[in-house]
């Protein structure tokens, strides 16, 4: 474990906790993409299968359970909670997210490190996570006023993979870890998708004005 990875995991954990708090306290999921949340459930289920087959550490196991539980909980709130589901921007969250699942799976079948079920699913989860934020970013452009909690949620979610990039650089040079092209390229693509959001988020924070993405 290194500081970059710990900071990344904490940023990721904080993002999902912030989102859950927003939904629970405001009883609203306005501005949140259900499609992105559902893609994240698939990402975590596909990636954390080794939860049952390999024990790394208490931390590793707990964090996997927390990410699976919170992502499922958020989807439940947005789909079934009688009050929250009324606030879902169904008409704006129109990205056909199921379209990105087959290509990511196909790519995982073609480009992977080892052709086993676990490895292909793990690779699939990396490719899918790289594009999972797309529905949310598109919804943001259509949302007139983005509330602070949503903005902070997306910032932390983007920051987590950016910190993982630093973690991979650190491990490559300090721990002489082997090249991990699949993780690196997926992580780069994922972080690059947040580029313009980061720009507008930092600008709004500097000028102390409301976060607004150009349509």
């Amino acid at each position: 474990m290194n500081i970059f990875r710990l900071a990344g995991d904490m940023s990721h954990l904080l993002s999902v906790i912030l989102l859950l708090l927003k939904i629970r306290t405001t009883k609203s999921c306005a501005g949140i993409s259900l499609k992105t949340q559902e893609l994240y459930v698939v990402v975590f289920l596909a990636r954390y299968l080794n939860l049952f087959t390999r024990y790394y550490s208490f931390y590793n196991t707990v964090m996997k359970l927390v990410f699976i539980a919170t992502s499922v909980c958020i989807v439940w709130y947005m789909r079934f909670h009688k009050v929250v589901k009324q606030t879902y921007n169904k008409d704006l969250d129109t990205f056909r997210h199921y379209v990105v699942i087959p290509p990511c799976f196909l790519l995982a079948l073609l480009v992977h490190h080892e052709f086993t079920v676990m490895e292909v699913l793990w690779t699939f989860s990396l490719y899918l996570e790289a594009v999972a934020i797309l529905p949310q970013l598109i919804l943001l452009q259509r949302t007139r006023n983005i509330d602070n909690l949503t903005g902070n949620y997306i910032f932390l979610l983007g920051a987590y993979r950016a910190l993982y990039l630093l973690n991979w650089i650190y491990r490559f040079f300090m721990e002489k870890a082997q090249a991990r092209w699949i993780s690196w390229i997926s992580g780069l693509v994922q972080t690059a998708l947040y580029a313009d959001f980061f720009y507008y988020y930092i600008k709004s924070w500097k000028n102390n004005e409301k976060l607004k993405l150009p349509a």
Binding site: H12, Y56, H113, E119, S183
Partner: peptide, 10 residues
């Protein structure tokens, strides 16, 4: 060989 190293990550 599978990336055992990276599997300890989340």
């Amino acid at each position: 060989t599978p990336e055992e190293g990276v599997k300890d990550e989340l």
